[in-house]
Design a protein around this nucleic acid. Structure first.
Lengths: 345, 345
DNA sequence: CTGAAAGCGCTTACAG
DNA sequence: CTGAAAGCGCTTACAG
């Protein structure tokens, strides 16, 4: 690697101190620097194609202009869409993004956070897995700026930006009921994350509000592990028993992706035999036989807001911001009201 | 932010020099250091929860253990899948990944590369847009390690890892022909990138090899811009004219995604009315009415190999590695041989 | 208007 | 077996 030009090189060539070069190239105290000298410095810097060493700058200023992004899996469309939004928003403020995937595993997430902090990121954007609370509390104590994304912990007073899950799901279930569906199945993950608890709660209370008794068998809570197989089984169980459900609610895009495949495999028509609602859009839903009704997460707003809150926090704004954004129910063909007679065939 | 503990803090507490602390914590010259002292240093480091400042280390060692990843758009499944693989492979070697999206735009890509280099990344993984050649040549001249991903420039002698596009598409078209299809449309991008030129070439020569005259109208080369609308129009044009094609080949996953939607909209059945092959898999194809035959890019191999080559290059290995990996044709229902009579209905 | 000097938190060749 | 010291490439308070 050829040696890059440094401030010193420029200083020597122009015959001034590095101090001056630094001031000029950073546009500081520019009003009391000799115009000619400044001009000359700029010229030489340009001709040598000077690029500041951000690392050296960081060591001195304690700012890296880098933020860390911890997602569950960057290859998941939810994460990667968010990553793109964060990237763009960060870029506006001259920040760069270092990322990592936790796979929802606590040790991985912990290690990731430590690694990113050793890299001296100025702050963190975290989609936290279960059990990370103690480490978050520690970050908070150390004064490390961070914002939680998508999930949060009610017992922790931290910045976060998430969907108003309760309301979103309540709305979705109400819509199903309004369209004439009564036997509504929910496929979700088994977890203590507030996100999914709220989703379940929204489902339960929407049923209750409409005086529809809930059946335990309608709710399938899957463990992590063999997700695809589990979803397929859950869909089969719910749709092909003696008293099948007439509508299915998927609590995440991954669940929906596999669930829809299974509906295809079972040759069930949507919504005639079973209506479908998914939380989280995915471009791919458009390939399905029937356009899917889904809860649209305000990803753009989530990503931008979270990034802004983080950058504010980095600038020593000490307020705590907690946002539960409203999801939009996008109604498509998959929840069309279906004639009861037809439906029972 | 509370001050983090530094080497100096530990040194003072233990009553030794920072030199010694550094050696111990980095396991260097450990055989000639007093065991007791070493032990004590480790204890204190632990009790103070010492975390090395990677930035300071980097300034001295000229190694950041960070690589830059320039993709076209991190929210595209191709990019994000690759990003995940790169992340994992990099992590194995204690490297972290800084990423950015170029949107296939030259100025964005240039700025990104500069930014990443100012961050002193040890090397770059780049999915290069058209026109970036001069900057790549410059990087090469400066001795900055980099590996091109997915695309490359024949006139530039650089490391790269890409698909053997010519062969892959040739194979796909041959398969269509073997299944009885003769009027094969290609939907691709208008570009000078070798990747897509090779794909087109593979298509043309497969037809030629089978003595099928090529019609210009069968090849749709779309500009960047309103991709979705253009794809939809291209699909409509190709499938609904007086002499429609009997098979469609999509040259990228984005093209296929929109194209399949349009086939749905046109109520065309696959493969009865038109067969479909796509380059690049996407989990989402599984939602389509008919499972899609596609060319499977060896993403895992691509990402891992590219990362390994880069890390080798960073370690001053001066060989140049160029890999054109073979794609696998995964045959599904969408290219099933269809009875000619049925097909013409 | 300009520069010498200290210092950010590390590493490491060198001396003892 | 251990430490003083230089230095990585910057920034910036201070002096003049």
């Amino acid at each position: 690697m050829i040696k890059k030009t440094s401030l010193k090189d420029i200083a020597q060539l122009v015959g001034v101190s590095t101090t001056l070069v630094s001031y000029v190239l950073n546009n500081q105290k520019i009003n009391r620097i000799n115009k000619q000298v400044a001009q000359k410095i700029r010229e030489v810097a340009k001709s040598l194609n000077y690029q500041p060493n951000q690392i050296a700058k960081s060591l001195k200023t304690n700012r890296t202009y880098t933020i860390g992004l911890v997602v569950s899996d960057i290859s998941n469309p939810f994460s990667s869409s968010l990553a793109r939004i964060v990237e763009d928003e960060a870029d506006t403020h001259n920040y760069t993004v270092l990322f990592g995937s936790s796979d929802e595993k606590l040790p991985k997430a912990q290690k990731l956070i430590t690694t990113l902090l050793n890299r001296q990121v100025d702050g963190l954007l975290i989609a936290p897995p279960e059990g990370i609370e103690p480490q978050l509390a520690e970050l908070q104590q150390q004064g490390t700026p961070f914002v939680l994304l998508d999930r949060y912990f009610p017992e922790l007073k931290t910045n976060y930006v998430a969907l108003d899950n309760y309301k979103a799901i309540h709305k979705a279930v109400q819509h199903l009921i309004d369209s004439g569906y009564r036997r509504i199945g929910l496929i979700t993950f088994q977890t203590s994350l507030i996100t999914l608890l709220d989703r379940k709660q929204g489902y339960l209370s929407a049923l209750k509000d409409n005086r529809i008794p809930v059946r335990k068998t309608w709710v399938k809570e899957l463990g992590i592990g063999s997700i695809e197989a589990d979803v397929r089984k859950a869909v089969t169980d719910l749709t092909t028993g003696a008293r099948p459900v007439d509508a299915l609610l998927f609590a995440s895009n991954t669940l929906a992706l596999y669930g829809l495949q299974q509906l295809n495999a079972l040759h069930l028509s949507v919504p005639e035999q079973v209506a479908v609602v998914s939380i989280d859009q995915a471009e791919s839903y458009n390939l399905f036989q029937t356009p899917i009704t889904y809860i649209k997460q305000p990803l753009l707003e989530m990503g931008q807001l979270a990034t802004k809150i983080l950058l504010d926090a980095i600038k020593k704004n000490n307020t705590i911001t907690q946002a539960n954004l409203e999801g939009e129910l996008v109604i498509h063909e998959s929840t069309r009201a279906v004639d009861r007679v037809t439906k029972l065939t």
